[in-house]
Computed example of a mutant assay.
Amino acid sequence: PAEKEIVSIERYGPLARTEVYSVTDEDEIKLSTTIEDIDYDFSRVSINSGNDQDSFISIRGGREEAFGCIATKSYLYEAPDSGTATTMYLIPDDKVVIKDIRRVRGDEWAEVTYSSSTHGLIRAWVERLSVQPLNQLDAPCDAPIADSPITN
């Protein structure tokens, strides 16, 4: 109630463009724009929806594809639902391409592809917390993630 804002977030090529429209003390509308790499740590913008729950926008990696490293043994799922588990799994240090991130009934999932020497290209879902982000697919699993926002 004290602050009136409208937040708009859109994919801007390989970047994210965030616009915040706010009302100043003089009742003027102020626009702030930020253009930055889409967060590789899968962070989200949380907006209080007024019913004690947060709405959020989840934005995946800043390129056409994001990359990750499996941190713990992770079973593969056919859909972002714990009832769709397969017998296949990935192990720590397996590298994946992240295609999507979703939140379903409070659980976060990552849709990934993995190139298996036995099974070929596998596309499946894993629990999001089992994937650590990488800047590029050939980076070591413990490589830090670069961040360089551009703000105006």
Rank of each mutant, 00 (worst) to 15 (best):
I47E: 09
F67C: 03
R103Q: 14
E5M: 11
P149D: 05
Q136S: 13
V97G: 02
L121K: 10
R103M: 11
S22E: 09
I35L: 04
I98A: 05
L134K: 00
I91K: 11
R63L: 13
P80W: 01
L90F: 09
A16M: 12
E78S: 15
V104Y: 12
P14H: 11
K99E: 15
L15T: 08
S55V: 07
R123W: 04
Q132H: 06
L134Q: 02
R105Q: 06
R60E: 12
G83K: 13
S46V: 03
T118A: 08
V45S: 04
G50C: 01
G83W: 08
L76K: 03
N51H: 07
T24G: 01
Y89E: 10
S32I: 11
A110M: 10
Q132D: 14
P133D: 09
N51K: 03
E3T: 15
V97S: 13
Y89K: 07
G62I: 08
V23Y: 07
R103S: 14
D41G: 03
R105N: 14
E111H: 15
D37W: 08
R60L: 11
V112R: 02
I9A: 10
S58M: 15
E3L: 14
F67W: 13
W109G: 03
I47D: 01
I91T: 15
D81C: 01
S117L: 10
E65A: 12
L15C: 06
I101C: 02
V104S: 06
Q132R: 12
R17M: 04
I29C: 06
P92C: 02
T87S: 10
D54W: 04
P133E: 01
Y77V: 06
E127H: 09
G68S: 03
A2G: 12
Y12I: 01
A71I: 11
K95T: 12
I145E: 06
A2N: 15
Q136D: 14
P149Y: 00
S49V: 02
H119M: 13
S148D: 15
S74Q: 01
Y77T: 11
S74L: 04
S32W: 05
I98H: 04
D81R: 00
Q136Y: 13
G62L: 06
R103I: 12
S8I: 15
R44K: 11
S130V: 04
V96Y: 09
